[in-house]
């Protein structure tokens, strides 16, 4: 198992790993897997809410990483950010295909309780900046952004949870994102 603190340290070169994957070097995908699988599993599990399904999604997502690594562009952003986007999008496709209605069962409660607060001491500079900027958003906008990212909810699902019109939720998310960008720049 990966040491949870390990992925905070900047000693893994995600960009080089993706470039090696693009050249067909399997050890690079394995290294990326060893480094990120447990973290990615947490992200996927949170969205799909089923351990077996989450592993299937993660398996497909690693094949997509392998397939699409050649499209990664290091001059535009981090390899880690790219990997998480590929994996999250695969998880969202799955949950929207299989189960358009999210089932908030016991499993969800257990996961919700495991959610740590953003005021952890081991956050990196970027993570602390994001937590700070999120804290400056009004409650509903912050809720919407976090709900969409962490739970993988759609506009409609968030609207129904908050008992607000879909248009309002969409506008909160977009205004929240623009405010986040300004705060982080």
């Amino acid at each position: 198992m990966t040491d949870p603190s390990a992925s905070l340290a900047g000693d893994f070169d995600h960009e080089a790993a993706l470039e090696a994957c693009a050249r067909g070097e399997r050890f690079a995908l394995r290294a990326l897997y060893d480094r990120e699988a447990a973290w990615l599993m947490a992200v996927v599990l949170r969205i799909v809410r089923d351990h077996e399904l989450a592993q299937d999604v993660l398996q497909d997502a690693f094949l997509q990483i392998w397939q699409k690594a050649g499209t990664f562009r290091r001059e535009l952003g981090s390899g880690r950010g790219w990997v998480y986007t590929v994996v999250r999008h695969r998880a969202l496709d799955e949950v929207r295909r299989v189960r358009p209605e999210v089932n908030l069962g016991d499993n969800y409660q257990a996961l919700a309780e495991a959610l740590p607060t953003p005021e952890r001491e081991d956050l990196s500079h970027d993570e602390a900046a994001l937590a700070h900027c999120l804290s400056l958003l009004d409650d509903p906008k912050r809720q919407c952004v976090i709900d969409a990212f962490v739970e993988g909810h759609t506009h409609e699902q968030i609207a129904s949870r908050l008992s607000k019109p879909v248009g309002t939720v969409k506008s909160w998310i977009r205004r929240g994102l623009i405010a986040l960008k300004e705060c982080l720049s």
Partner: peptide
């Protein structure tokens, strides 16, 4: 790409599984 990196910190709210 910029958003991928801006939002990445949200993944830190979860414990590895």
């Amino acid at each position: 790409y910029a958003w991928q990196d801006r939002l990445l910190g949200l993944t830190r709210r979860l414990q590895p599984v």
